[in-house]
Write a protein that binds this DNA or RNA. Structure first.
Lengths: 292, 292
DNA sequence: TAAAAATACTCCATAGGTATTTTAT
DNA sequence: ATAAAATACCTATGGAGTATTTTTA
C-alpha cells in the first residue's frame, strides 16, 4: 500500500539529500525513514534513489514520482486548509434557498441586501416554487433552506423558526360595494366572489382559513390564478375580491382598494432547514439577519 | 493523520451514496469504512457527509474535499503507472551522455543515428568536455554515462566497457621530410617537433605514450592547440607533425599527409557509467548499439 | 576510523474483522 | 419489522523505536 507518509519521507529525502537529516526533518528515526523508503521502492518496483556515500541522487523515475508526490501533499494540505478555514469563517458557504412565489417577489428585494450586508461571505442561490416542492427538495438536499408560510407538518428531520407575521388584507376594485366599509367582517365575504390562487399555493389555503370558509364550501370555480399579479388583474377587472398579504399590496396603485379583515388575520412566514445539516449556526445567523 | 485510505473510502462513499455498498466496493466491512470516515471527519474537524436514512449527502466542504481527494488518488495512480511503465519499457529514459572533444565531432554523427534506430524511445542529451570533468560530473550524477578513452583509473563506483580501438596516424604537411616514408618509426619523431593538444586532453597523453616519449622529455613548448582542428591547421602551416586518431583524418584533404606509426599504436574508446545507477541494462543495451 | 545507511528485533498504535446496538422508516 | 449505520471489542499488521551491523570514503 502506497502511503502519504512514504511520500512525505521521500520528498524530505529529496530535499535534504541525506537520510539522517530527512529523518530529523520528519521527526522520526533514520531507520524508520530508511525502511519506509525501501517499502516505497519495493511497492513501485523501481529504484527511486541512487544511494551513494557522497550524496544521493534521484533516478529519472524518482524525479517524476517526486513531482507527483509534491502535488499530492499540496492537495492534502489544501484539504486540511479548506476544512479549518470553514471553521474560522463558517458563514463562507453557499446556501441554496427556496422561497414560495407569494413571498419571493415582495420580500426578497428588501431581505437580500440586508443578509448580504450582514454576511458578505455568504452566497445565496435562490429557487422559487410552491411549498410542497420546496419541502421535497429540502429533504433530498437539493435545497439547504426555504422561506415559506408556517405551520409545516413537522418532519423531525426539519427545523423551523418563525421570521415574522404578515397580515392579510381584503382587496377589491374601488367601485366594489365593500369598498365603503372601513373594515371587512368575515361574513361580508361571499365565497362565490372570492378569487383564489390555483391549488398548490399555500396562500390559497391560508386565505380560506382566514375567512373561516369550511372545506367543501362551494367556491368560485371559474377562476384559478397562477400568481398574485394575475389575481390583482382579475380583481381590477371586477371579477371578484381577494385576500392579499400586506407586502403584495402597492399602496400607490389607486386601481385597487384595500381594507383590513376583522380579527387581524395573518400568515406566519418562517425559515426551514434540515436538522441533519451540520451548518446549524449558519441558519441561526441567517434567521437573525432575516428578522431584523 | 489524514490517509489515502480514508480518502479512498470517502470517494467510494460519495460515489455509492451508501455505507454498505461503499464498503463492498472497497472490499472491507461496513464498520471499517464507517470508522475511517469518522476518523477523517474528526481529523478535519468538520462534517463531510450529512447522514440520513433516505440517502447521503455531501456538505459543501465535503464536495470540495471530494474533488481534491479524487485528484490525489489520480496522482497516486499516476505514480504507480509511471513506475510500472518504466519496467515494461526500460529504454524509455533519458541519458545525459558526456563525450570527449576528440571523439565527439568525428564519431557522434555516425553513432547517434544507429542508437536512435535501435532504441527510438531512448533520449540522449550530449555534453562535450575533457575526461576529468566528465568523470567528475558522472560521479555527481550530472551525467549518466560518458564516452571516452580508456583506461580510466578504476573508481569502484564506475563501470567501463571497451567499445572499439581507434588507431593513431602521424600527420604532417606534404612537403615534410617524413612524408616520403611509408611507415613512421618511433625514433623518427622529434619530440621538439611534435605538436600536441593543450593539457587536460587525454589524447595529448595518449599521443606521448604512443610515441614512447618519457615524462620530462623536453617538448615543443610554443604550441598548445585547444582542438584537433587547430592542430591540423598548425601542421598544415608547417609548424610540426602530430598524431591524430583515425576518425579525425579527412582522406580527401590533400593538404595533409598521413602515415601509420609502427606498432599499430591506438587508443581504446570506452563507455563508462555508475554502478549505482539502477539502469544497468540500459547501459548494456547502449553498449551493444554503439559496438555495431 | 568515522559517518551513514541498512538490518535485526521489539513494541504498540491502529486498521480491520465480528458481533451487537441504535435509530429511523 | 427492517435496514442501515454506529458502537464495542478483539486481532494482527505494520510503523516506529533502539541497538547493531555493514559499507565506503
Amino acid at each position: 500500500m502506497l502511503t502519504l507518509r512514504q511520500l512525505e519521507y521521500f520528498t524530505a529525502l529529496a530535499q535534504e539529500q541525506h537520510f539522517g537529516r530527512a529523518a530529523q526533518h520528519c521527526h522520526v528515526s533514520q531507520p524508520t525513514l530508511s525502511h519506509q523508503i525501501q517499502l516505497l521502492e519495493e511497492r513501485l518496483g523501481t529504484t527511486l534513489i541512487e544511494r551513494d556515500r557522497s550524496g544521493l541522487r534521484l533516478t529519472p523515475t524518482g524525479e517524476s514520482v517526486l513531482e507527483k508526490a509534491r502535488n499530492m501533499l499540496q492537495l492534502r494540505d489544501d484539504i486540511e486548509q479548506a476544512a479549518t478555514q470553514e471553521q474560522t469563517d463558517p458563514m463562507a458557504t453557499t446556501l441554496t434557498l427556496g422561497v414560495i412565489p407569494t413571498i419571493a417577489p415582495y420580500w426578497l428585494p428588501e431581505l437580500l441586501p440586508m443578509v448580504q450586508q450582514a454576511y458578505p461571505q455568504l452566497k445565496l442561490k435562490l429557487y422559487e416554487n410552491q411549498t410542497a416542492d420546496l419541502l421535497d427538495k429540502l429533504q433530498h438536499g437539493q435545497l439547504d433552506a426555504a422561506i415559506l408560510a408556517l405551520p409545516i407538518e413537522h418532519d423531525q428531520k426539519l427545523r423551523t423558526t418563525a421570521l415574522y407575521e404578515e397580515p392579510f388584507a381584503v382587496t377589491m376594485a374601488p367601485n366594489h360595494p365593500l369598498a365603503s366599509s372601513k373594515v371587512i367582517a368575515l361574513e361580508d365575504i361571499d365565497p362565490q366572489e372570492l378569487l383564489l390562487l390555483e391549488e398548490g399555493h399555500c396562500l390559497r389555503d391560508h386565505a380560506l382559513e382566514a375567512c373561516k370558509i369550511a372545506q367543501g364550501t362551494a367556491l368560485n370555480a371559474n377562476v384559478r390564478a397562477s400568481s398574485l399579479e394575475t389575481l390583482k388583474h382579475l380583481v381590477k377587472a371586477g371579477m371578484g375580491i381577494t385576500l392579499l398579504p400586506q407586502k403584495a399590496i402597492d399602496e400607490h396603485d389607486t386601481s385597487l382598494t384595500t381594507r383590513p379583515l376583522t380579527g387581524e388575520a395573518c400568515r406566519i412566514i418562517g425559515l426551514i432547514w434540515r436538522t441533519t445539516d451540520p451548518r446549524q449556526h449558519v441558519f441561526r445567523n441567517l434567521e437573525k439577519a432575516l428578522k431584523s
